[in-house]
Design a protein around this nucleic acid. Structure first.
Length: 588
RNA sequence: GGGGUCGUAGCUCAGCCCGGUUAGAGCGCCGGCCUGUCACGUCGGAGGUCGUGGGUUCAAGUCCCAUCGGCCCCGCCA
């Protein structure tokens, strides 16, 4: 007996058909006389009726059936008696009258009911095989697959080809902590799992493939977050003979393709904002542009202020910035105090809040300000009754970060973040380098293979921190969902960057010798990007964390609750790898 | 490495502030009854190392300390 169709596909057109169904028992309702079983497979549910009038032995057999038993049922599709249709079920107009039933497997009592949406994530992850059986999870996994397919089809149509790159590769300095894999045949040596296929895709460009892509796992041994897993999936691509705009166009196409899957039409071109402007207006390099509340620099208003804290801040080269929270006057005294505390946590020395009431502006600050300054404030923020204004006087970067975070939390608290809006944008003109205080050297903001802007090349010798990179990030609703750059394709520039990063010639030769070699054999100009596939899927499915869109995710302690990984290994395995532990794995 | 929060029946939670009978509820589970339910109904029943270890106390689910684990965040994440 072979399955003839899926449960969830049956309808009135099938009335009269004899079918063979295989699936799980979603629920059993035993009325003593007649027993109903909702049978579920990946396509949905259908009600199966076990009636003593049809076959008493089949009806008897139905008594032993429990939740999540696996059944094979042969029966006849019939129209339900008038008045017993179930409009909540896609198959609710029909039912299958069982003529033969076989229990293919029993099931223990479940640790949780599959349709209970309240189960904790911990329990779900431990019994992930049951959790994934839930229609919601099946839907997400299928969506993820469709998104991957759509990406492949789109990139294929543009002439990209998928080339696999190694997972057992070489540890790269810079960037995240590597996951290491010991090499048995090379005792004492290790592979690293790739943080990204970065160098390989550049090599593929040198090799003349012109357009490469891969939907590929990447590994980074860093602490986890709702949007960060130690292994995650990227849509990775690289193109030859291109400028930044060419890469952007491809990414915009991918994003539009993906969002059409949820019937959202993204703009043809995404807005572009410079890193500098993003930091000023939003206080963050991945602005959420679904709502306004721009940060403004109002330092000029207070050039000759008598208010000592402002005066001092400005004298030391700091700034006075703030934003208006529309409707923020609803915040109570206590709530405003709490925002002040948040500002302290974010690193500012303080927060000034101003309410706009029918009596005019209301704040401790006002008595210290001149009439002109008060008027200037009103004008700068175009305040209306019911608004609140938050100000920070501090060093530029601190003011930016504090206000940037506050802006997000305040908007959330006031319900000003539209849930169904999607606001993609590009952030460009990142600095190439930043100074690392601890390591006492420059480090790459993006990565060491990112090309400097042509016009900034002379600054490499005079003022490296001023050099801008040909780098770009895609940001969506305040989340960084991808980043890339035009790469260095000339050996002399690459060498110079390594020098600035304090990667010596010898070290560079050992670590990136193959890349430097490749750059000497006719490397074309090239660039690319990687998109965080899990993050995009999470946004598309409105998931709270990327764990919801990964079949087998890890907990914050980077453990798999289902398999128990990571775990200790046999002494013999360690010996074979010539490894000695300095710690007992059971402790810590 | 740090801050916050949670951990009590199979699941979700109440009890903890303010220590004191036999630790409760809903759902699930088991058994009986029930021929049109679909969150079936109904009657009865079973089920607990209160995360773990230590301490305070005549007495600890409740107070204190440590520790383990889930989640959120900071640091970290080229």
């Amino acid at each position: 007996m072979k399955r003839s169709c899926y449960c969830g596909e049956l309808g009135v057109d099938d009335v009269g058909r004899e079918v063979v169904l295989e699936g799980w028992v979603n629920r059993r309702r035993d009325h003593g006389g007649v027993t109903f079983v909702d049978l579920r497979d990946r396509e949905g549910l259908v009600q199966v009726v076990f009636s003593p009038e049809v076959d008493s032995s089949v009806h008897e057999k139905a008594k032993e059936i429990r939740d999540e038993y696996v059944l094979r049922v042969r029966g006849t599709v019939t129209r339900r008696p008038p008045g017993t249709e179930n409009p909540k079920l896609r198959t609710g107009e029909v039912e299958v009258v069982a003529r033969e039933v076989e229990v293919l497997n029993a099931s223990r009592t479940l640790p949780f009911k599959l349709d209970n949406p309240e189960v904790t994530e911990e329990v779900r992850l431990k019994y992930r095989f049951l959790d994934l059986r839930r229609p919601e999870m099946q839907k997400i996994m299928r969506f993820r697959y469709r998104a991957a397919m759509a990406t492949r089809e789109y990139l294929d149509s543009l002439g990209f080809i998928d080339v696999e790159t190694p997972f057992l590769t070489k540890s790269t300095p810079e960037g995240a902590r590597d996951y290491l894999v010991p090499s048995r045949v090379n005792p004492g040596k290790f592979y690293a799992l790739p943080q990204s296929p970065q160098l390989f895709k550049q090599i593929l460009m040198v090799a003349g493939f012109d357009r490469y892509y891969q939907i590929v796992k990447c590994f980074r041994d860093e602490d986890l977050r709702a949007d960060r897993q130690p292994e995650f999936t990227q849509i990775d691509l690289e193109m030859s003979f291109v400028e930044r705009e060419d890469v952007m166009e491809v990414v915009e196409g991918i994003m539009r393709t993906l969002f059409r899957l949820i019937d959202v039409e993204l703009p043809e071109k995404f807005p572009v904002i410079s890193y500098q402007e993003a930091m000023l207006k939003y206080g963050i390099d991945r602005p959420d542009t679904r709502f306004g509340m721009f940060i403004q620099d109002i330092s000029r208003l207070f050039e000759s202020t008598e208010f000592i804290p402002f005066k001092e801040t400005l004298r030391k080269g700091g700034t006075i910035r703030g934003f208006k929270a529309p409707g923020g006057a609803v915040f109570s005294r206590k709530e405003l105090d709490n925002w002040g505390k948040r500002a302290l946590e974010f690193g500012a020395k303080g927060l000034i809040s101003i309410k706009v009431t029918d009596q005019g502006l209301q704040s401790n600050l006002l008595k210290y300000l001149s009439l002109g300054e008060v008027e200037g404030l009103k004008e700068a923020f175009e305040v209306q009754e019911g608004d609140a204004v938050f100000l920070v006087a501090d060093e530029g970067p601190i003011a930016a970060e504090t206000l940037g975070r506050l802006r997000l939390e305040v908007a959330q608290a006031l319900g000003l973040v539209p849930e169904d809006a999607y606001a993609p944008l590009w952030v460009v003109d990142f600095p190439l380098l930043e100074w690392d205080k601890d390591e006492h050297r420059y480090v790459a903001v993006h990565h060491p293979f990112t090309s400097p802007m042509d016009e900034d090349l002379p600054l490499l010798d005079t003022d490296p921190l001023k050099v801008r990179a040909k780098a770009y990030d895609v940001v969506l609703n305040g989340q960084e969902i991808g980043g890339g750059s035009i790469r260095i394709h000339k050996k002399d520039i690459q060498k110079k960057i390594f020098e600035l990063l304090h990667i010596g010639e010898e070290e560079a030769r050992i670590k990136f010798g193959f890349l430097l070699d490749a750059l000497e054999y006719g490397a074309p100009p090239h660039g690319g990007i990687a998109l965080g596939f899990d993050r995009v899927i999470a946004i598309l499915t409105k998931a709270e964390s990327i764990r919801e869109v990964i079949a087998f995710p890890k907990t914050q302690k980077a453990q798999c609750l289902m398999t128990g990984a990571p775990s200790s290994v046999a002494e013999a395995q360690l010996k074979e790898l010539r490894l000695k532990l300095t710690v007992s794995p059971d402790k810590n």
